[in-house]
Nucleic acid binder design. Structure first.
Lengths: 236, 236, 236, 236
DNA sequence: AATGAATGAGTATTCATTCAT
DNA sequence: GATGAATGAATACTCATTCAT
């Protein structure tokens, strides 16, 4: 098998994306300058524009590609999990989420922290993709509740809580750190499942019964009026 | 009811802090300009310098005050909780953390997102305060484990996971939202406690035994070699 | 009489306008750079912005002030001319137009040549003022025609032709040139009047009768359907 | 009728000139970019350089060709006019000038407005051609004066005034406008001739006698010391 | 305490042009 | 004849900050 003509080594466009990712991660989108980027890639600033349309376009491209990859990988993870086993599917999602987030630490960081640097139109696109992703976990929790194996007070809020917890791991994770990836996955999986699994004994024994507290039935997808918008507000 | 002599409206310095907080929250520290700030306060840019030393000083002041308030309030919350009841103290901490974060949404957001905009010296001060705060939760978990009422695989990582989860709530919380503060507190308290409480039945039945997986004893404060650095790295 | 504090010598803002006028005249608005302007005024480029809002704002200010001055001076010239004497008023207008245009050569040049560099909103404002000015001459011609002392085939087109001719003088006029201002005024006044005055003998004897040529009655303000738009088209 | 082999559509070079003409006319030479031009022609910017030497070269080519065409057509117009009839020849020139200027509105506009964008060497060439053209009208007026049929106070200034007036027409002329070309020609011819023709009655009756005013004899080509430079000054 | 003016460093982006392919 | 990539120079404009008043 011969190598393609253009595939011997990183192309300039790929370098720009790679270095751009690094610089945005390290300094933030606003604090990073295209001069810096060009210098690190070994170009004059003007030459960047043969490969990107604008600085904003670079950011959007990075975040957008990340979102698509995240959705794609989550789909694959769920496709590989047995259909009839809600808990197994939830485990698969948790493992996927953690592994992707530990692997793509910088993409994830940018996608979360630089949302606000996106122009309104781009912002809407990314938030819609993120919403799609969140809905996957929400659907998983609802499956489990419907099957009677999970017990959560409020599905969407619990989903956001889980996502926040798992995503937090990529904040401090380092490959050379004390815990291995499988350990981290196991630990968080355990934490989440213990928090969500239906137990034989009455759950009230261990925690407050929310329906008592609020006088409302626990919310499910069906009667959820306006799910809380996760994440930061869009710029005005 | 008469008005106090000194309370007739915010002083200029306070206005600057208030508007600064809002603008940093809305646009980010780098994207917000002192011109904007001055305009919203009703001053010329040059006049700001009668009240702040530098833009960086404004940010540091906001974040620093927030950290002190957070530490102070957590101390009060724990002081009010019974000494001998680790689970009660954990509940108190969770409630305090959530309430503070929902109340001071913007301060919290800035303290988390704009850490990287702090100059190294300021960064170190804030991270040290944050570490102090994190250690309070770590201590609580260790108390509970020592008392045999909690069961966590790895105390510091679990602490970070809990903090990430709880802090995430202030991301989407809105006063006019679907859930009230007590509901949110109850829901998250339940989720955390179910995940951490020691159960009568064997926990292995519901989650993987991490000590099996890793071949190491569960870590506690004593044998923790290099605790994972929480949060984002400081700029170079 | 003591001098005002701020009036001893040209203020910075006035210098910017003066030098700006010169540079735009010499190089054209697009070809002139604010760096140049700043250098000639003796400022850093950034300092210009204490006195102008944008480069476009500078251009508009210059052109706008010129148009107002032109309208004001033409009003004064006509006010000083006897009411019942259309030819005398026409003479007054011609003299005013030529003198103003020879005096304010650069303002006039810019107002004519850099119209296209104006942003649409500014362009509309200036064109409206110019239209007002043109209408003054049109009204004068109509007065003369109504009084039976002028004879023109088409009032608006003749007005534009006269304006083009007179304005052309400022193109080549130089104070140190061969002809003095009064000579230039006399020459053009004569040329225009001879072209427009009603003569005792039949005018057909000297020129074509347009109404024969076109089969239409000569146009006057009354039946003028859509007056030709003088000047260059607005940018798209 | 069969199509010629070589005439199947404009060549690339011709497209560039055509689109270049349009863009310079619409936006001005400085404001128009070769990128724009390339895009409208359907090329990459680099490909333009297979057809033009530089942007300046494109401008010069357009203006130069226009000047040659103008000179050529004026020669033809005068060649067709009877030799011994100065007024007839003046009529011919006026008609030619107006028709050419209305037909080649954009070329004319560019040749007048973008003179200043020409490099000094190119500028001199074009101005020399224009001077040649102006001299044709000057010569015509002098012929008429010598023959005793025209009466102008100052030949060159009158010539410039006439040219300015006639050229002004192409500024507002539109094919779909209110007046047809023949009407416009007739109107302006009348205006010019009335202004220049020697009349039986004493002209002093209608206009000021310039020779009285200035105390100098009317200027003719012979005693003209320094003819006024028509048009705008070249950039330094 | 407030301000108008100034500044040096910096921003993203555009431009005409070149050149190897 | 066409192009993708590169470039050096330039552009208008913004920024945090200073300082005399």
């Amino acid at each position: 098998m011969t190598r393609n003509a253009g595939s011997h080594g990183p192309t300039t466009a790929a370098s720009i994306r790679r270095v751009g990712l690094k610089l945005i991660y390290e300094h933030g989108f606003n604090a990073m300058s295209l001069r810096q980027l060009a210098a690190e890639v070994g170009l004059q600033p003007a030459s960047l524009y043969n490969h990107i349309r604008t600085k904003q376009g670079l950011l959007f491209g990075l975040v957008h590609d990340h979102m698509l990859a995240l959705l794609e990988q989550s789909a694959q993870a769920l496709a590989a999990a047995p259909q009839g086993d809600p808990v197994g599917r939830l485990r698969a999602f948790i493992a996927h989420h953690l592994l992707y987030h530990m692997e793509k630490k910088r993409e994830v960081y940018i996608a979360n922290f630089e949302l606000r640097s996106l122009e309104p139109a781009n912002y809407r696109i990314i938030v819609a993709l993120r919403r799609t992703y969140e809905e996957r976990l929400i659907a998983l929790l609802e499956e489990g509740v419907a099957a009677g194996v999970l017990d959560v007070h409020d599905v969407p809020v619990t989903a956001y809580a889980i996502l926040a917890m798992l995503t937090g791991a990529c904040t401090w994770y380092k490959p050379e750190g004390r815990l291995s990836k499988p350990e981290i996955v196991a630990l968080h999986t355990d934490l989440v499942l213990k928090g969500c699994l239906r137990t034989a004994e009455a759950p009230q024994g261990r925690g407050p019964d929310l329906s008592k507290l609020t006088g409302q039935p626990p919310l499910r997808r069906g009667n959820r009026p306006t799910p809380p918008a996760a994440g930061h507000e869009a710029p005005a």
